[in-house]
Design a protein around this nucleic acid. Sequence first.
RNA 1: GGAGGCGUGGUGUAGUGGUGAACAUACCGGUCUGUCACACCGGAGAUCGCGGGUUCAAUUCCCGUCGCCUCCGCCA
Length: 604
Amino acid sequence: MPQADWQRTVWCGEVSEEMAGRNVTINGWVQRVRDHGSLVFVDVRDRTGVVQVTCDAARAPEAFAQARELRSEYVVSVRGTVRRRAPDAVNPKMKTGAVEIEPSRVLVLSAAKTPPFYIEENVDADELVRLRYRYLDLRRPDMQRNLVLRHRFVKAVRDWFDAHGFYEIETPMLTRSTPEGARDFLVPSRLQPGSFYALPQSPQLFKQLLMVAGLERYVQIVRCFRDEDLRADRQPEFTQIDVEMSFVTAEDVMTQIEDMIATALRAVGKDVTTPFPRLDFATAMARYGSDKPDLRFGLPIVDVTGIAAQTEFGVFREAVARGGVVRAIVVPPGAALSRKDLDGLAEEARSRGAKGLAWLAFEADGLRGPVAKFVGGAAAALQERLEAPAGSVAVFVADEEAVAAEALGHLRLVLGRRLNLTKDAGDALLWVTDFPMFEWNAHEGRWEARHHPFTSPVEEDLPLLETDPARVRAQAYDLVWNGVEIGGGSIRIHRRDVQERVFRCLGFTKEEAQAKFGFLLDAFEYGVPPHGGIAFGLDRLVMMVAGAESIREVIAFPKTARGGDPLTGAPAPVDPRQLEELGLRVEAGGPAARAAGRGRNGTA
RNA sequence: GGAGGCGUGGUGUAGUGGUGAACAUACCGGUCUGUCACACCGGAGAUCGCGGGUUCAAUUCCCGUCGCCUCCGCCA
């Protein structure tokens, strides 16, 4: 195919001193025009960088005249000669700062309206404006860096899986609604009016079927959908790295997968050491008050229930008497917590269910604080147990165990941030293992699978299925990075008898199990390999690598907190004929009608 | 479903019960041959998100509503 005469021969960011004297053509966007009268500088940008075009009225009158008409974000083709700049005109801040292009022709390929915000590194425009003009936002170098980073990371992930014998296999996007888990996005069927597909929350059941099918090693980088409320790190559509392997133990999955993660991270310039440390769930909850602890800093939670029971402090004694616990975090000397800080911490603790927050300052000459007078003879034992140095302050929560853990876990994170312990602290990756198999759902008065009903219990806990389900541990594992859950998986049940016992625990009758998961159970009648796998949240992973505050910074076209896309206007009402074809009707007075009654976007 | 924060020229902010609504930047015009966040001179640009209330008077106070952000619930 012949080259059109305006097409690039070199990228803007790659014009170099070695090219001096050569005739080149660049294509790109006008970054900035500096008009000096009869000398005009035009910075031209493409995805590789910026290069300066110097238009001299005396040397190239035609190109000069064209250059004066240029405005920001015009798309141009510039042909000219690469020239070394005079030594005093070199710009050391620019990659191409030692050269410039002396144009013989400046061609406008496309004019542009003035953009609503400047196309530059650190934009301060409102995110709503950025999303409405996302195509302009994505011109900015930092957004392009994030997208390129994502590409490189995904490429490295795929390469690793390919090199290790995994096949990438697609699974349906239009599938069947399953009873457990998140709310499904539904898609009405036109050919079967009144019936609905669901978009996949994850390809869980399909990947297990692929194991039954003997594919052995499966991976898919796959879009998943969950109709739940959004967060800074959560979108209703997101991408998983979905993995399943046959004839493996939890140990195999963890060792192989951590190599994959380390390899992919290395490909984007992040070095992490393997093996990753491991922490069992019970310890994580007790020490860090979280199943995804941030191990970039210490501030462990210490249990002082035994000692607290011996004090004269009513709140402690009553909590213990009711079967609760008293736990504490020691804030090191030098944190300089004011009375106001402590009140703020108490408020934080209450926001996570604690009734209050007691505190004790360990000073050289004794205890200080409102509770000090009740501690009495237990002071020395308390200080020793807490390993609290002079000048430190301990904060206490007395409550039932789960509440104390959760509240102190939250305080630990608040303190970590406030004391600047996470900054420059490196990266802390770890596996959390030995999750409980079941969770008690108080609302419905039954046990629920914490991971999912096909997760295999730990072998030695099998007898507990009938006697004490709360103590059954699952062969499940989560990968946690700096306090963010980036992936989780499990070994699945492949024995029919175990599966039936787990279903019994969950209160399913045989008939219910068959109705809900029949297609998988049927498949399991035909020879199932032991298997297990894991899934990662790709968006979160890339967000972490990019050091971004929000998942939206690493997604090209994300949604707002209400699930909308300001660029396309999705979601939107549809033509009545579309509804009619599907046999659907929007109910008068229902939620749809109420939404339609609301005014449109008030900021337009 | 709940809590909090925010909403003022294109963009980012300031501000006040009575203003000519301020500043920066972008934008338009002009001068300028070495700038690179060019500089300098001049200009235009805002029914202060929307609706209602209190008041002689509301951008400001109150209520509602819409939108954006964060968090709780939710996310097997």
